[in-house]
Amino acid sequence: MQSYEYYAPRSLPDALEYLAENAKNCRIIAGGTDLIPALRNEDIHPAFLLNIMEIAEVGGISETEQTVRIGAITTFNDLAESGLIRKEFPILSEMALSVGGPQTRNRGTIGGNIASAAPAADGLPVFLSLDAEVELSSRRGKRNLPLNEAIAKAWTPAWGNDELITAIRIKKLPSGTRTAFYKLARRQAMARSRMTISLILRRDPAGIIEELRFVPGSVMPVPRRMEEIEKLLTGKVPTDELLDQAARAVGEEMVKVTGIRWSTGYKKPVLGNLFRIVLSQLITAG
């Protein structure tokens, strides 16, 4: 059993003040689905625990003409139940429903999913595929950071320890864009992802790929868009031969990052297979 000071403010300035004062030994808790087990296992030993779940400005889902802002303490179930999200980013709804089980979806938040920066995170790769930005607040002010610059390494955010992730911002997708999320796991619920595929696709009327964004999840220490694969297919009509070629390249790109590990014999071919299957379904879907 550990002891630490616990603070659950209702105002954002109070929270940022507290964070700035105690930055070195403070951990931020939202849903606690990662943090509570880490405390129990004594993997972390914070002196201060800042609960942000009572702060209204850190929650809610809102839109402008161009963008959607999702508050950091939005839970996976909030996300899954949002009509706005289902309309603008169905890939986020699908991802949210695949997370853990009802209990973890009721507690786990998207801000926590990003800040934990777990290699097997489900939310992180989907937000990366959407070119999301994180809104960071501190006593020093507010700034937006592209998500692909926000994770330093596995389990480690790249922002300052006096900064709090207050929201995710995503630009709305051009009309005609299709999205897909696929999760391969050892069972249908309460399972860490073995691999995930996040795809954003837009084709012109002739079937040529205008834009493709692809992020594999649970295969690299920090998930990122596989731009090499996106480039390989963009500007082309996705024939079967081209898809097979891309599927092989996916595995090779993965190995460039991860090197050969015990799981490579499985993940290298199967990641390519999943990419081809999910992309083919997206292409033939309409």
Partner: peptide, 11 residues
Amino acid sequence: LGEYMIPTSLD
């Protein structure tokens, strides 16, 4: 039981 897998009701 997060690592040692047994079926869930969805399986």
